[in-house]
Design a protein around this nucleic acid. Structure first.
Lengths: 251, 251
DNA sequence: CTAGAAGTTGACGTTACGTCAAGGTCAAGG
DNA sequence: CCTTGACCTTGACGTAACGTCAACTTCTAG
């Protein structure tokens, strides 16, 4: 039993264009090609098409589908991989959601789009809840007061310094420097000194508390808002590793 | 203060290619272009770039970003729209997850990829839990026994009949027929008769129970596994409406 | 003066088709 | 026999947001 391209498309609930596409990429060649060039499909082809469409609905790419079907492989491992991909995507969306909501809140409280950026170097304010929970209300209140007490010019200077630091981190990370190298450790020293200059930091006046530094490092990696200051997740991981080593040796 | 394309890219944590792209699509033209064709950006451009990147991280498209920034519009509505898009995406992923898991289960229980398709017309087995809960263990057991008792040939015939019915529904839906029209109601009659021919269906022997038919209609729409048999959500909604009307008038 | 770093403009590749465009094939009806 | 209409064909462009050469020019430091 043979069917034309249009008939097959209707039966399977897709379009003739899709079938031509699958032919073009070699995923589903027609059973027979008439002297006029018309494509004809038999029952086996229809079965394969159904499998393709099934897998496609699960969200797999055509290339993956081809591998699964052609290898006559057990499709379960591929499906499991796909499952974890779905999970990763869901997690990403959830993070986006959180960020968007936070941005909306910021805007509605009177901030402009840049208000978020302006605080880039001043991580605490954006993590009020976490900071309060982990380091106490006083730490937050102190640094908050310090921040609010600065003049515009002072803030600008301070921001420049922190931006420069972040840029240097990013550059080092992009050059794939070893976190244990002198260069990275020098940056870590600057970073720690910078942290120590912020009133409210645990250990302010002497040197920041080791656990505080380690915790910050993790936060840089875990949260995209921080991570982006250091060149994404990779960069943040580099910062975290360098800071961790520095903290172990010197704090 | 001016900076070259490369410098700006590093500061903002992006690439020069991206900046050229933004120039090309008119999203962020450079402040000045040197006699050599080099692009130079000033502080304002950098601010705009930061805003662009911020919005981009939230998942907005460049076109949307342009609208938000150029209209000097309140970005909150756009962000809210984006938020609901994110929600829809999350829901979609969740559905996919469920389906993939179900497929894995099916495969591990010894079914092949087609086992899922083979049961297309025989909805009950795929909804064992729901069916049992709503219509009782007996209904499920009866229809299951009936299905297993058929020969391959009988199943093939039966499948053909149900496939044809689904195809007819799909065609009618695509032609935007009115669910109350004669054609749609004739299909509904066939559908109800078909349901009535399945042992285990509530009302088997006489006519299917009205609530059962209505419930099925909702399930067709709600679950993509059913919906696809009738040409997607739109098609399933058509089937549901036609069935609902038929059930009200005749059951 | 010359290497190397950085800049430029094309242009193709990516995903899975949708959507014309231009034209050949086939069955039915006048 | 001719037309109409349905169905088929092969291109080829468009999509989102750049990555990645390629080929060439310009700037900067030794």
């Amino acid at each position: 039993m043979e069917a034309s391209i249009q008939q097959v498309a209707r039966i399977a609930g897709t379009t003739s264009r899709t079938l031509r596409h699958y032919d073009a990429i070699g995923l589903l060649p027609p059973t027979r090609i008439g002297h006029q060039g018309y494509r004809f499909y038999d029952r086996d082809a229809l079965v394969r098409l159904q499998q393709i469409l099934l897998l496609r609905e699960l969200g797999l790419g055509l290339e993956t589908i081809r591998e699964v079907l052609d290898a006559a492989d057990d499709p379960v491992p591929a499906l499991r991989r796909h499952l974890s991909w779905l999970d990763a995507e869901a997690a990403r969306l959830e993070r986006l959601r959180t960020t968007v909501e936070r941005t909306i809140t910021t805007l509605e409280e009177g901030g402009d789009l840049m208000a978020e950026e302006m605080l880039d170097g001043f991580d605490h304010t954006r993590y009020k809840d976490e900071v309060v929970e982990r380091w106490g209300k006083d730490a937050y209140a102190t640094s908050d007061a310090w921040w609010r007490g600065m003049s515009e010019a002072e803030r600008a200077d301070w921001k420049t310094a922190s931006t420069t630091l972040a840029a240097d981190w990013t550059a080092a990370a992009q050059e794939r420097v070893d976190p244990a190298s002198e260069r990275a450790q020098a940056l870590a020293a600057r970073h720690v000194a910078w942290l120590g200059s912020i009133p409210g930091t645990p250990g302010y006046g002497t040197a920041p508390v080791k656990e505080y530094v380690l915790g910050l490092g993790e936060m840089y990696v875990a949260d995209p808002r921080f991570a982006k200051n250091y060149g994404g997740e990779q960069g943040a991981a580099f910062v975290r590793d360098a800071l961790a080593r520095y903290a172990e040796l010197h704090l």
